[in-house]
Amino acid sequence: MTMIDPHQMVINAIRSVPDWPKPGITFRDITPVLQDPRTFRVLMDIFVYRYMRERLDLIAGIDARGFIVGSVLAYELKLGFVPVRKKGKLPFQTLAEEYTLEYGNASVEMHTDAVRPGQRVLLVDDLIATGGTMLAAAKLLQRLGANVVEAASIIDLPELGGSKLLRENGASVFTVCEF
């Protein structure tokens, strides 16, 4: 039986969609990774093996694909899960952090009681592009007193500078693959 590198297995399953959401952009779609049970397990095992010996208190996942990976990882590591949502989606008292997009601003929110000071939190999303969403989520966690242990994602698009921006702002970054 031929063994394939787990990272390569995930890379091979990611679908590239040209000219979406607009001409000139190639969207990296993780849906095929999630649809194939073997590849999804390999992906989750990569994350589990990386963090199983870390002293973590919570996993925070960014709306919406970060919820998928983050909640499964929290379950596997026997940790709680905290959703970082787009503005206006959480029903309780929230704290918001604004960030810049190509065509304006957006913000993410968390419940004010989502983390306690000193908790060690892993921040998870599917992709790091410009880093704005991930950096805003990290700032939210820090404003609530949490220690962001690492910012983790499936995909990094290094030419867009997001992982570099996160590192420049003091975050450790882990990604499964780059495009």
Rank of each mutant, 00 (worst) to 15 (best):
D19C: 11
T112E: 10
E178K: 09
V148M: 14
I62P: 01
V149G: 05
L56V: 04
V84D: 03
Q142K: 15
V124K: 13
R15Y: 00
L43V: 00
V69Y: 14
I62F: 07
P18A: 02
I4R: 01
L73D: 08
R50C: 09
V149L: 15
L73C: 07
L73W: 08
L157V: 13
A60T: 11
E54I: 02
R120M: 11
E159S: 10
C177M: 07
D45C: 02
E159N: 05
D19T: 11
N147S: 09
E102M: 03
A74S: 05
S71G: 00
P83E: 01
A114E: 05
K89G: 08
P21M: 04
F174C: 05
G61E: 11
A137I: 15
R41W: 03
E54M: 11
D156Y: 09
Q142S: 12
F27E: 11
E168G: 00
A60L: 10
P83C: 08
G88W: 11
L56A: 10
S163R: 02
L58F: 04
I154P: 05
V124N: 12
A114H: 10
I11T: 15
T130E: 06
I62L: 06
L56N: 05
L122H: 10
S107H: 15
V121P: 05
N169P: 04
I11N: 12
T175A: 03
V48W: 11
D156W: 06
L43C: 12
I62M: 07
G80M: 00
V173T: 01
L165G: 06
Q35T: 04
R50W: 10
S153P: 00
F92D: 01
L95Q: 07
R116W: 00
I68D: 02
P6Y: 13
G170K: 01
D57N: 09
T175E: 02
R38P: 02
C177K: 00
E150R: 05
E76Y: 00
A96E: 13
R65S: 06
L135G: 08
I154F: 01
N147M: 12
I154Q: 05
I62D: 02
A146Q: 02
L166K: 03
V72Q: 11
T112S: 07
L90K: 07
A171G: 07
D113V: 00
G131C: 11
V115L: 12
R167W: 07
A129P: 04
